[in-house]
Design a protein around this nucleic acid. Structure first.
Length: 114
DNA sequence: CCCTTGACTATCT
DNA sequence: GAGATAGCCAAGG
């Protein structure tokens, strides 16, 4: 396993685990937050390799749709996990659940309020 | 080394 | 809004 992978994976996991229930982030956003711009495609790789339980279902495409084929088992699985958290999926589009907590992910990770 | 593969994105028709 | 297109970049053959 390359050294890049080890560092990258760790960064990605750290970001993904901090996504709150009912909220979602795109692959590109996760990659950027972890400090790896333009590595959206690597995010999926990192998640499938995760040794720990990861809320992978909260990571979606930038256009707010699931990254799997609509008919696939994986799609149904992710959709049900999200709906269980109050997320709505209408016409394939993801509508995040309402929350009172407006703390941004940036604050959670870097403690730097806007 | 060259080529293909993605749980991706941004942009243009 | 749906397709097509062109970037993207590490991994694996």
């Amino acid at each position: 396993m390359s050294q890049f992978q080890q560092k990258f994976d760790k960064g990605i996991w750290q970001v993904v685990t901090k996504i709150k229930p009912g909220r979602v982030m795109s692959y590109g956003e996760v990659a950027r937050m972890a400090g790896y711009p333009r590595h959206a495609r690597m995010v999926s790789r990192a998640m499938s390799r995760s040794p720990i339980a990861l809320p992978w279902h909260r990571v979606v495409r930038s256009n707010r749709t699931l990254a799997f084929e609509v008919d696939s088992d994986a799609y149904e699985k992710q959709a049900s996990l999200l709906e269980k958290e109050g997320v709505e999926i209408i016409k394939g589009k993801i509508i995040p659940a309402k929350t009172d907590d407006d703390t941004s992910l940036d604050e959670l990770l870097w403690g730097t309020p806007k």
